[in-house]
């Protein structure tokens, strides 16, 4: 619909570990931009006309914006705790709305059917009630006390357990998932989905993780998360319409979808409609 309200937000545009002096071209909300490594060792982002764009380096990624971000990139305080392993999962391109990609990440009810025997399995399909709120002060969507049965909750998990999650949407195309951490009871693993909107119907998805897991080889951690996301990709590319419908009536949510309902309401309230469909077509 419109990129006006979203233009001043931060978006991921590359991995810090993969910056090259010659740079690489990519798209941000329809604009071609170049992401490169400056002579000072810092990331540089510019339009093709050479106009420099704002840059933040954080959470393994380069962040930029076509507008003027009014505030710094959101915090993930837990990610800075010592002892966590930070995992650059890489990038996967998906032919879908960036908002649909985030909404799918907020959903647990699909686990038994899409991530079968890994994140969920029949007959354990029930989604118990959980809490959803828009935290006004931080201006973020939060879902807490989300519980779901998982046959293999993470690379380090063996056997079925009930896993608890918290979901957080701090920016229109980013979500942070906190998940119980089998090796460290009482702590939460951090799994994020950072989505770069290339256009309203095409996105690059950069998952990133900050985990308490000293044993699993890094490559196994990367493969696990890539596997999970690629199982979602064929769903995301086959949802109709491609854009996320923000008007009620086009799709039918249930109690299990309260996070998605709050996310859509929050998007609409802010006019975050790049990748959304407002009027039923």
């Amino acid at each position: 619909m419109s990129r006006d309200a979203m233009i001043d937000e931060w978006y991921p545009v590359g991995l810090l570990s993969q910056l090259l002096p010659e740079g690489r071209e990519t798209l941000l909300m329809g604009e071609t931009i170049r992401v490169s490594l400056g002579a000072d060792g810092r990331a540089k982002v510019a339009t093709t006309a050479g106009h420099p764009l704002p840059v933040t380096e954080r959470y393994g990624h380069v962040w930029s914006s076509l507008g003027q971000p009014a505030r710094p990139l959101f915090d993930i305080p837990e990610a800075e705790h010592p002892g966590r392993r930070l995992v650059d999962v890489g990038v996967v391109r998906v032919r879908c709305s960036p908002l649909r990609a985030v909404e799918n990440f907020l959903d647990i009810a699909h686990f038994p059917f899409v991530h079968t025997d890994i994140l969920g399995a029949e007959p354990h399909t029930e989604v118990e009630s959980y809490k959803v709120e828009i935290r006004e002060e931080a201006d973020e969507v939060w879902a807490t006390q989300v519980k779901f049965y998982q046959p293999q909750a993470a690379k380090s998990a063996s056997g079925g357990i009930t896993t608890e999650y918290m979901y957080r949407v701090p920016a229109p195309t980013c979500s942070v998932l906190y998940k119980t951490c089998p090796p460290r009871p009482g702590e939460w693993d951090v799994i994020t989905l950072f989505v770069q909107p290339l256009t309203e119907e095409l996105c690059d998805v950069w998952p990133w993780m900050a985990l308490y897991d000293d044993d699993t080889p890094m490559t196994d951690l990367i493969h696990f998360q890539q596997m999970i996301f690629l199982q979602d990709r064929s769903i995301l590319e086959n949802q109709i319409p491609r854009r996320l419908p923000l008007d009620p009536g086009m799709e039918i949510p249930t109690r299990a979808d309260l996070t998605s309902v709050a996310y859509r309401r929050w998007l609409k309230r802010h006019g975050f409609t790049y990748g959304a469909q407002l009027v039923a077509q």
């Binding site: 059917f113 079968t116 029949e122 399909t125 890539q226 596997m227 996301f229 690629l230 990709r233």
Partner: peptide, 17 residues
């Protein structure tokens, strides 16, 4: 066995509910 992008043939199992 599957790989990501190839879903389980759920029809091979009866509906548990």
């Amino acid at each position: 066995i599957e790989m990501p992008g190839i879903h389980r043939l759920h029809e091979l199992k009866p509906d548990p509910h």
